[in-house]
Amino acid sequence: MKNPVFKREINTMFRSFRTFIAIGAYGLGMLGITALILFDVILDNSRFNGFDPKVTIELFCCMLALQTMVVFLAVPAFSASAISGERERQTFDLMLLTKMSTSDIIWGKLLSSLLFVFIMITAALPVYSVVFYYGGVSIPDLILVYFFDLTYAASIGSISIFFSSLFKRTVISTVLSYLTLVFYPIIITVLTLLIYAGDYNITDSSWLFKIIMSVNPIAACLSIIAYFSGTDIMMFLFGRGNAENGIKIWQMAIFFNIIISCFFAKLSASIIDPIGKNKYR
């Protein structure tokens, strides 16, 4: 990686005590929750019904949900200060003076946030080994989950960096990032419910339905959980319907996340460019 911002961020990231606390806390959290589920579900099942491999899929889905939740919480905390933090530290102008383009700066910041997320979720990899021990989930499944979460982290990170570019204060950019990321899926969910109220028989794999669902991170997460459970999101949620023929909602969500990331990164780069063509004169 040739990006100077990325190199510097990585260099300093591992000097910060905060990084190790975050990674350690996440690993321990995953371990604790997995242990609880293991004792509660797997041991219960094996005592009374013999061992059912489906239980490991449930465990895997719980871990996926937890991991996605952690990504949701951690990424804005790191990314929302990407540009505003540089402004507050009065190092931002010095960076703009260099030969780096504003896109280099934004991508360096975004990729370093992603690397942090990657390292954090990779630190919990030994916990996933429990799932492999009991079977039912393969390594490609795990890679898929990682890829899904990384694209989700990229979209969240780019939105947070966008707010960080727009506002001078980190507090404001952090609050707005979280508010957007919390209310956006809620609004989309309400809209979906309004459009498809009472229609549980969506069997035509409508593209409109898929697009609306794929831009909703909650639906995308449920879709991937449904996929691992060997079912469909409608079936998973309501016990009826079939909306995921052909391309799955979570697959479209990955594509959507990449588009969102590129769009907001480009927008942020344009915002921070002090002499850009579209700048107010």
């Binding site: 510097r8 260099n11 300093t12 000097r15 910060s16 530290r89 009065q90 190092t91 102008d93 010095l94 003076l97």
Partner: peptide
């Protein structure tokens, strides 16, 4: 250019 107000990255060494 050396601005009137500027910051430095405290967690870097001078050479870095």
């Amino acid at each position: 250019y050396m601005p009137d107000f500027f910051g430095v990255y405290d967690n870097l060494k001078v050479s870095e």
